[in-house]
Design a protein around this nucleic acid. Structure first.
Length: 257
DNA sequence: ATGACCGCTGGAAGCGGA
């Protein structure tokens, strides 16, 4: 079973890119972020024609997450991250697919830092840590997949000092990610590729793609019973080189199930 | 690197993104 996470950066603007990738790579489950569309404009019919059922949480202009499943209907469990009844940004969806809990998340970027946006990022991260702990304690198979907006280690970014103040690389951001992992989650891509670049994002600016100066921001974390089934993982880099591409490429895993 | 991108909003520049 192939499961992918992909920050699509506007699902309607990039629908043809998405459909082409789905046709070529045939993932069974897909977590999408940055739909940038309100709920009623999600392209459910086009995806169904391509063989995918979906659940989604839309918002005008920004954010937005979706979970797709090939030839089966994902069962929505929740559409908001618990812990703050005043936070309605469309950044979290959780669904059951084939007996696995799929959490699709879009963690706040947090720039500029310091400031209220960075505080929101860290607060959101704390809520995720609390909820992930509950999922772990429930003992069910879980995948936490999405755009974490965190560069986990120095080898997950091209050599530069120009981003030292960026929210993506702040010690507080990395420490929160570490604390999440220590609950017992497996960082699937890094586990199968322990060293070297595994970029999932290349900035549109400054010809970062052409120079292959990227970052690893998109992660799939596995609960222990799924980590034992992990057989393959990678990044579909070719997607970033297409016309009209998102600035992210899909990251994916294959589980023996 | 006080950065050259991309797309949205609104109807012009300004913003969010990372």
């Amino acid at each position: 079973m192939k499961i992918a996470t992909f920050n699509i950066n506007n699902i309607n603007k990039r629908l043809q890119n998405l459909l082409f990738w789905l046709e070529k790579e045939q993932p069974e489950v897909v977590c999408l972020q940055e739909l940038k569309t309100e709920q009623r404009f999600f392209p459910a019919d086009a995806l169904r024609s391509a063989g995918y059922e979906a659940v989604w949480v839309g918002e005008r202009s920004w954010n937005g997450v979706a979970i797709l499943a090939r030839e089966q209907q994902p069962i929505l469990i929740r559409s908001e991250l618990p812990g703050d009844g005043n936070d309605h940004q469309a950044r979290y969806a959780e669904a059951a697919v084939a007996g696995v809990v799929i959490a699709c998340l879009y963690l706040p970027n947090g720039n500029p830092q310091p400031g209220p946006k960075f505080a929101y990022k860290l607060a959101w991260f704390e809520r995720l840590i609390v909820h992930a702990n509950e999922l772990m304690a429930a003992g069910v198979p879980v995948i936490l997949a999405g755009d974490y907006n965190v560069v986990p280690t120095p080898q997950d970014i091209y050599p530069t000092r120009s981003l030292d103040k960026n929210a993506l690389v702040q010690p507080a951001s990395l420490e929160a990610f570490e604390r999440l992992l220590r609950q017992g989650w497996t960082d699937a891509l890094r586990t199968l590729h322990p060293s070297g670049p595994l970029w999932t994002f290349w900035d549109y600016k400054f010809e970062r793609w052409q120079a292959d100066k990227g970052m690893r921001l998109d992660h799939l974390l596995l609960s222990p019973q799924l980590a034992a089934l992990l057989v393959e993982a990678g990044v579909d880099r070719w997607v970033r080189g297409e016309d009209n591409a998102s600035d992210h490429a899909p990251a994916w895993i294959r589980l023996k199930m």
